[in-house]
Design a protein around this nucleic acid. Structure first.
Lengths: 242, 242
DNA sequence: ACCAAATCTTTACGATGTAAAGATAGGGGA
DNA sequence: TCCCCTATCTTTACATCGTAAAGATTTGGT
C-alpha cells in the first residue's frame, strides 16, 4: 500500500499499456473496437463510475481515506480525471453527499409508506433516519459535514432541501396543521426543531459511540433502536424534558 | 506564502519576535548571551503556547487551517516542534479538544451556579451548552469530531467523561432520582438520551446553519436562544414529540 | 564539571490537491 | 470523405502537509 505516487498511478514506468487494473479490464469488453483488451481512452460514464467508487472508498476507508486520488485509483483512471468532472475535492464530496441525501430520502419515504398504524407512522421516519445512518455511516457523516460541502451546487441543495421539507411536512401532519408558505409560529418552529434535533442528535451521538455508555447500562440486550423508541415515546416525567 | 517548504518556515522572520535569522548567525549570537531579546533555543512552555496557538488558528482559519505546521508558524517555532509534544496531529487535536471540554464544563458549571429559580436552573445548562458552541464554534466542532481524536488519551477521556457525568447528574436531579452506579432503567436512559440528543442536535444543526430556514420564518427577531427555550419548554402537542 | 535526557531544528520523503499542458477520441460541417 | 473542434482523459509539475530521523542546543542530575 505504500506505493510511491508515480508508480501507483501507472505514469512513468509502463508507458505502453495504459490501464492494467482489473476494473479497467472489465470496462474494456464494453467497447467493441477490435476485440482488444485495451480500455478506451474515453471512459463513457466516468462521472457515475467515480461517484460509485467514491462511495465504496468512503465506506471502506472512512472519510480520511476519501481523497481524489484514491477515488481515481478505485475507478482505474488517472489521478487528475476526477477534477474534470467535479472541479475539486469539495465538488466530489458535495455530489456524493447529494447521492446520499437522495438515498436517504428514498429510504424514509418507503419506510413511511409501509407503516400502517398511527404509532408506526409516527416512528417510521425516525427509525428509518437512524437506520440509514447506521447502514451508511460514511455517507451520513459526509452529508452533515458542512465545512467540506458546497451547498450552492444545485444537486446537493435540492436533495438536502427535500429532506428538510419532508421532515417539516411530517411534523405538520402530526400536529394536524398546515405548515406551508413562509411563516411559522414559535410553537411550530419549536416542534420542528425539537423533532429534528432529537433524531439528528441521537444519530450523531450514536455514530460517535457516545451512547455506548448508556446502552451498556440498560437492561440486557437493549438495542439502539429500542432506546430511540423509548426516547421518542416515553412520557415526560417532569415539566421540562431536559 | 508561496515559498518553498524550508524557506517558508524559518526564514519567515517577520512573523514573530523570535527566531529571526536563518541558521548559523542566530545560533552564534545567541551563544554569546549578550542580547537578552534573543530567543532561547528552548521555549520553556512550548506545550501551552502551542495549544493556545492552535486555538487561535482554529477559530481564525477553521478546522481546515488547523495543521501542525500552521500551529508551529503561529507559535514561531519550527514545523516539527509540535510533534515532540503531541506525537502527531491527532494528539494535538485531542489535547486541544480536552482544553475545550474543560472550558465547556467550566462554563456550564458557572452558569448553573448563577441560576436561582427552578426554571432558570433547568434551562441554565442547555443555554450554556449552546452559548459555548456559538462562542467557540471551532472548539465545539473539534470536541465532537471523533474520527480525528484519540479518546485513549487520559486528559481527553477525563474531560469528556466529566461532561457526560454532569449531564447525567443534572437529569437525575431533575427527575429526583439517584442515577448512580452502573444500572439504568430504560426510562432513565431514554431521559438522558433525549436531553443530550436534543441539546446536542440543536447545537450542531445551529452551527451548521441548518436552522436558518426555521429562524427566518419565525416571528421577527426570534433568536436561536429563544427557539431553544421554546423547544425545551413547549408543551407536547401530540402524544409523540416527533 | 560532566554526561544523559529533554527540547527544538534541519533535512528528507511520500502523499495530497490542483493547475497546466499534452494526448486521444467523437462528432459535426466542408 | 476528410478535417478540425471540443470534450475527455493523462502527464507533468508544484506547493503544502504529516511524519520520521538525525543533528543542534539546553537543562538537570550527580
Amino acid at each position: 500500500m505504500a506505493k510511491t505516487d508515480t508508480k501507483g498511478e501507472s505514469t512513468r514506468g509502463s508507458r505502453a499499456p495504459r490501464r492494467t487494473t482489473p476494473t479497467a479490464a472489465s470496462r474494456a469488453s464494453r467497447r467493441a473496437t477490435s476485440a482488444k483488451t485495451e480500455t478506451p481512452y474515453h471512459h463513457g460514464a466516468l462521472r457515475e463510475a467515480l461517484l460509485q467508487a467514491a462511495e465504496r472508498v468512503l465506506e471502506r476507508d472512512g472519510l480520511a481515506g476519501l481523497t481524489l486520488r484514491a477515488v481515481a485509483r478505485e475507478a482505474g483512471v488517472s489521478h487528475a480525471a476526477p477534477t474534470h468532472h467535479f472541479g475539486d475535492l469539495t465538488g466530489l464530496l458535495s455530489e456524493l453527499a447529494a447521492v446520499g441525501f437522495r438515498q436517504f430520502n428514498a429510504a424514509m419515504a418507503s419506510s413511511c409508506n409501509a407503516a400502517t398504524t398511527p404509532l408506526e407512522r409516527a416512528l417510521a421516519r425516525p427509525k428509518a433516519y437512524v437506520a440509514y445512518a447506521q447502514a451508511h455511516p460514511g455517507m451520513y457523516g459526509i452529508m452533515f459535514r458542512t465545512e467540506r460541502l458546497d451547498y450552492s451546487r444545485p444537486s446537493l441543495h435540492e436533495a438536502a432541501e427535500a429532506s428538510f421539507a419532508g421532515l417539516a411536512n411530517a411534523i405538520g401532519m402530526m400536529r394536524q396543521e398546515q405548515i406551508s408558505g413562509d411563516a411559522l409560529t414559535l410553537e411550530q418552529g419549536a416542534a420542528i426543531a425539537r423533532a429534528w434535533a432529537m433524531v439528528h442528535g441521537f444519530t450523531t451521538l450514536l455514530l460517535d459511540g457516545r451512547l455506548k455508555d448508556i446502552l451498556e447500562r440498560l437492561p440486557e440486550g437493549t438495542t439502539a433502536e429500542r432506546l430511540l423508541e423509548a426516547m421518542l415515546t416515553a412520557p415526560i416525567a417532569t415539566k421540562l424534558p431536559v
